[in-house]
Design a protein around this nucleic acid. Structure first.
Length: 801
RNA sequence: GCGAAGGUGGCGGAAUGGCAUACGCGCUAGCUUGAGGUGCUAGUGUCGGAUUCGAUGUGUGGGUUCAAAUCCCAUCCUUCGCACCA
């Protein structure tokens, strides 16, 4: 009989559905395993061949865990709020809710055709009011704890989407989504104080098992630095505070630079003699987008403030103050002391403006470039610091600054608070009203969910107001606090809101009185293994860790970190090695692959394509190789014979393969796990026959990768029961070795011969064998052995002279 | 500029001090099939000798070692991330 993958796959998918085979049990006494993949945004394009790569990988892990006896939770859902759906709805005059439902239906059908073992009884959708009720609830808790606030902010504004973007959403100066120009705009925005958690978000990375590159980029993004704040008196009689990571170089500070937005300029305007010039520079800087600012990064621009000078506290010298857009108001104090001899940007600026450069750390050549090395330099021209190392000097100067009330140690972060408002329709309404008398008031929790109202048109207004602002019946309300007239917040939450806690909802998806029962959370959390894209490292991953830590602080969850382990997959590229996209014409549709080759071949190929963590180009011909492998596994039926033990010829091969496959799955080495099973198949065909026991083990090993064909063969061979109810096979380390091994015989490190020997042969036996070998004798003719190296089971090497 | 990952056959990739190229694709030859994106067998890094041989070979140049794709130093290139963060 031929391998009819279509019939087999639909048969088993139906059986699994009827039997609820992959339903996670609410039996909290069993050992649990929570495997998670990022839930997709159900776009109009349908599933991409990139989606199944991580889904299949953790499906393999989940299926293996079930065979190992765990109660496994492997859920799926839809991150369905967002701009593309809204834009599509606007263009085609369909309600986003309808578009979302259509897209979800298509995605679900496509995902189900792959035979992934998701527990569909726990499916969630972020646009479901029963779900976003709890997104809003979390927001209210953040508000009540002072972590959500509204503030006038200089924000990133996408001119094409007409929407505010978080810093994380601005990529190369343009909008991450549409590529539109991003400019700065001052707007009143809801903000979340993620910065309050900056230190913990770094510290707690110690306790989790994330791949290194994820930890590194999170740390870089949070950007912790240590240094000092130093107060400089000015000739205007006030104080300017700067932040520096190099207080040791204070004696080399020859000028000061403040940001164009620094408040001092307004405050001391009457003392500034060149105000026109300053204002012109400020205006030019304000107009520039971040992209333009960084494009011209190499050429330093600025204006000296005439009329006010700063006084260096260590030597009482007056130094000039400049404004320049290379100093950002949003970091540190918006003012720096410039030490051109030991900072690259200051060096460039000093060269451009012909300012003095004083060396205070010896060891470099400041004629040529700034000397920034902290490890080797020795302090010079620095009064009391002379002769000290940089590290010693830092300590000493900070102590001196503190003693004299001039400064103190300070930690700074690059991380900014999270801009949380979007002027859009298709998102969670922010559950706050504004009352003239009471200010911002949260709506009572029992009124949640605050439903997204029906609208005629989803267009944002030209002045950047949310579409909801056009609906008076929504906007006008009464204050929950005083009962007077009040207006609702009309901005909605960003797409990242719903995905910041979704892993908690899976634990108890239908709970109406809490985001999930405490008992369920305590049992399932933390997620044991979370796999997702590297592109989410600084957005979703950081945001969700922040929310989780907050929920931990208020007692909702019992673990500090949401994910015990995080891994990441590489992208699947087009056949030409470029990113798959419609415009490049290299898109592969997963439906076509499933139709032509079957889900099992598709799954196998997605895992065999290369190193899971690296990008790999799609190749149709290699797909055929995987189909061939399954055909050959199917055809083993022709040579199988009775027998409930492993056949002698294959025993060590089978033990070796169990070990290899078991270990490789845990280490993301799916490609070599498959290669090992292919090698076993080659061994079986060399042997000419196999027992049922041999076959059975091969089927169980292959089951997580190709669940349909293995389940079918298991039934046809009459083993009884379903394969997914069996146990993962174990191996015997001793039996992984063959009885005899081939060893290599070398003279001076060059291979001269090979020989069979008992696998447990002693070093002496091996050396003797080598000495008696004709080719070895020939190679050593007339020479003296000066050293014998014997590696058991591997090689013998004689060093001769 | 800073940070991370990487550079191995015609291709995807194995090998983390001990037989370089496992496994798969492709290709060559033979058999099979006889309307095929079929099946089987043998071969397939390079150069030279042509049966069972010799040399050479993991970006480049040095080094450590009996032994290096693997460890160390230098250098070039590719990809990704961050980018005036004081």
């Amino acid at each position: 009989m031929k391998y009819d993958f279509k019939a087999i796959e639909s048969k088993w998918q139906k059986i699994w559905e009827e039997k609820q085979t992959f339903r996670a049990e609410n039996d909290y006494t069993k050992p649990k395993y929570y495997a998670l993949v990022e839930f997709p945004y159900p776009s109009g394009q349908g599933l991409h061949v990139g989606h199944p790569r991580p889904y299949t990988a953790l499906d393999i892990v989940s299926r293996k865990r079930r065979l190992e006896g765990y109660n496994v939770l492997y859920p799926m859902g839809w991150d369905a709020f967002g701009l593309p759906t809204e834009n599509y709805a606007m263009k085609n005059h369909i309600h986003p809710e309808i578009v979302t439902a259509q897209n979800v239906a298509r995605f679900k059908q496509q995902i189900q055709s792959l035979g992934l073992s998701f527990d569909w009884s726990r499916e969630i959708n972020t646009t479901d009011p029963a779900y976003y009720k709890w997104t809003q609830w979390i927001f209210l808790q953040l508000f009540k704890h002072g972590l959500a606030y509204k503030s006038e902010m200089n924000v990133n504004w996408c001119t094409s989407c007409k929407v505010v973007l978080a810093n994380e959403e601005v990529v190369n100066g343009v909008c991450e989504r549409c590529g539109g120009e991003v400019v700065h705009k001052v707007k009143s925005q809801w903000m979340l104080k993620i910065t309050e958690y900056a230190q913990r978000l770094i510290d707690d990375l110690e306790d989790v098992d994330y791949i290194d590159r994820v930890k590194v980029s999170q740390k870089n993004w949070i950007g912790r630095s240590t240094g000092a704040e130093v107060n400089f008196k000015t000739t205007a009689g006030d104080t300017l505070t700067v932040y520096t990571t190099r207080p040791d170089t204070l004696f080399g500070a020859t000028y000061m630079v403040i940001s164009p937005e620094h408040p001092m300029i307004r405050e001391k305007a009457d003392l500034i003699k060149n105000m026109d010039e300053i204002t012109a520079y400020q205006e030019a800087a304000a107009k520039k987008s971040d992209f333009e600012r960084s494009e011209i990064a190499k050429d330093k621009t600025g204006v000296e403030i005439q009329g006010i000078r700063a006084i260096n506290p260590v030597n009482e010298k007056e130094i000039p103050i400049f404004i320049s857009d290379y100093v950002l108001m949003s970091y540190g104090t918006g003012a720096i002391m410039a030490v051109p001899a030991h900072d690259t940007s200051d060096y460039d600026f000093a060269k451009a403006f012909n300012l003095p450069i004083i060396e205070v750390v010896a060891g470099g050549d400041i004629e040529k470039e700034a000397f920034t090395d902290c490890a080797t330099g020795v302090m010079v021209n620095s009064g009391m610091l002379n002769g000290l190392s940089v590290e010693e000097a830092k300590k000493k100067i900070i102590a001196w600054l503190e003693e004299n009330g001039i400064g103190h140690p300070k930690v700074n972060f690059k991380l900014r608070d999270w801009v949380f408002s979007r002027q859009r329709y298709w998102g969670e309404p922010i559950p706050i009203v504004h009352c003239e008398k009471c200010g911002f008031v949260p709506i009572p929790e029992e009124e949640l969910p605050l439903m997204l109202p029906e609208l005629e048109s989803f267009e944002p207004t030209d002045d950047g107001q949310s579409p909801l602002s056009k609906l008076d019946s929504f906007v006008n309300t009464t204050c929950p606090c005083c009962g007077g007239p009040a207006k609702r917040e009309t901005d909605t939450m960003p797409q990242w809101a719903g995905s910041s806690w979704y892993f908690l909802r899976y634990c108890d998806p239908n709970n109406v009185s809490a985001l999930a029962a405490k008992e369920a959370l305590d049992y399932w959390m933390p997620v044991d293994w979370y796999n997702g894209g590297m592109e989410h490292t600084t957005l979703h991953l950081l945001y969700s860790r922040f929310w989780h830590k907050f929920l931990y602080d208020i007692g909702v969850v019992s673990c500090k970190e949401p994910y015990a382990k995080r891994t990441s997959h590489g992208m699947i590229l087009g056949e030409n090695g470029e990113k798959m996209s419609k415009s490049r014409g290299n898109v592969v549709n997963p439906d076509d692959v499933v139709n032509e080759y079957g889900a099992d071949t598709m799954r196998l190929y997605e895992m065999f394509i290369g190193d899971f963590e690296k990008a790999a180009p799609w190749k149709d011909t290699s797909l055929r190789g995987c189909k061939r492998f399954l055909d050959r596994v199917w055809n083993l039926q022709d040579i199988v014979c009775e027998g409930d033990t492993y056949s002698q010829k294959l025993e060590s091969s089978i033990h070796k393969t169990i070990k290899k496959v078991s270990e490789d799955i845990e280490n993301l080495k799916f490609n070599t796990a498959i290669a090992a099973m292919m090698a076993l198949l080659n061994d079986i065909q060399d042997a000419g026959s196999l027992t049922k026991a041999d076959y059975r083990t091969l089927l169980i090993l292959l089951n997580p990768f190709a669940p349909h064909i293995t389940e079918e063969l298991y039934e046809q061979l009459g083993f009884g029961g379903m394969l997914n109810e069996q146990s993962w096979p174990s191996y015997d380390e001793a039996k992984c070795k063959a009885a005899t091994v081939e060893i290599v015989l070398q003279v001076n490190g060059k291979i001269k011969a090979k020989a069979e020997i008992d696998a447990n042969a002693s070093k002496e036996e091996m050396a003797l064998l080598a000495k008696e070998n004709d080719k070895m004798k020939q190679a050593m003719e007339g020479k003296q052995i000066v050293k014998e190296i014997v590696v058991p089971g591997k090689l013998v090497n004689f060093v001769v002279r």
